[in-house]
């Protein structure tokens, strides 16, 4: 007991001394307070923010191996080449390391922005694409009501009737779908490659345009309005964290009331890390030639 209370006494004294040092109790002389402050306490810098001339910070890359002293670092290198998955990034306790957490957040932010932001007007002007809307008024409605994104608005229908060449062999449409950023990243290379190849093959290509808040099925509506033989949609895919910029091409031959999903030919994974967009454009030319010749797309083409 005696030893215990002695220990308690000591602890209390130490705590009081510590508090005194920090100026949290009253019974310390002002002089003493002044000196301890200067000696022990870091002073916050109150300088105003000035341009430091440093480059802005960037999000850490997660391509490295963060495991300390791994059993076989070569093995992890090979693993990381085999998959884009977030591996070999170790841990802080059981939680991710700070760099991995920030990278995840940045990738998610990019994915969210791809979905929720619109394709910019400047981009559409540069690509010489005019804009039409679907029945979906805004992104929230577009996301909650898929059927609205499959139909052009009455105004949209009027505009394309007015501006587009009728009865084309191939009508190309650019549709934001679930990734506006994939459109801005890929269309500048896919569209000219595709148009060049089709034109060189003597195929009549319609007037391309852009559809906001559109889904895959909107190509059926466009095909019917313009009486197109084939419609190609360049449409943004649902973004993942590895890339938010992946685009698909959906192709339908002569869409009508009986069109089902299996009638569409699809190529996904068009982006710089997948099939490069210019290469994809040239590949699509071959596919379209085949579809026009077979007068069928989707499962019917493969039969």
């Amino acid at each position: 007991m005696a030893a215990e209370s002695q220990m308690e006494q000591l602890i209390v004294e130490n705590v009081m001394k510590e508090l005194a040092k920090r100026g949290l109790t009253g019974n310390v002389s002002p002089n003493q307070e002044e000196t301890t402050k200067k000696a022990a306490r870091p002073q916050p810098k109150s300088e105003p923010y000035r341009e430091s001339g440093d480059d802005p910070l960037t999000i850490p890359e997660i391509t490295g191996i963060w495991v300390p002293n791994p059993e076989n670092i070569e093995a992890i290198k090979v693993m990381k080449q085999a998959t884009p998955a977030r591996i070999g990034l170790y841990r802080a306790g059981a939680r991710p390391k700070t760099g991995a957490m920030l990278k995840f957040m940045a990738d998610h932010a990019q994915a969210m922005d791809a979905v929720f932001l619109d394709v910019s007007e400047e981009f559409l002007q540069r690509m010489n694409l005019f804009l039409v809307d679907t029945m979906a008024q805004d992104k929230e409605e577009f996301l909650k009501r898929p059927e609205l994104g499959r139909k052009l608005s009455p105004e949209g229908e009027r505009i394309i009737k007015e501006k587009c060449e009728k009865n084309p062999q191939v009508q190309i449409i650019v549709v934001d779908g679930l990734s506006s950023s994939s459109i801005e990243a890929n269309v500048p290379d896919v569209l000219p490659a595709l148009t060049q190849g089709l034109t060189a093959a003597g195929i009549r290509v319609g007037t391309p345009f852009f559809i906001r808040n559109g889904r895959v099925g909107v190509q059926d509506h466009v095909g019917k309005v313009l009486n197109a033989e084939v419609v190609v949609s360049l449409i943004g895919e649902r973004p993942g964290l590895v890339t938010a910029d992946s685009m698909s091409a959906y192709i339908i031959y002569s869409p009508n009331e009986k069109t089902v999903e299996a009638d569409r030919t699809v190529f996904s994974n068009i982006h710089r890390g997948g099939t490069p967009p210019a290469e994809a454009g040239a590949h699509l030319v071959d596919v379209l030639k085949r579809i026009l010749k077979a007068k069928a797309s989707g499962m019917k083409l493969n039969q």
């Binding site: 998959t83 998955a85 977030r86 841990r91 590895v242």
Partner: peptide
Amino acid sequence: PGGDDIMLSYQDTSYH
């Protein structure tokens, strides 16, 4: 891995 399913493109609970 890292909460990011690279095949199904969605986020789920991670190994961490």
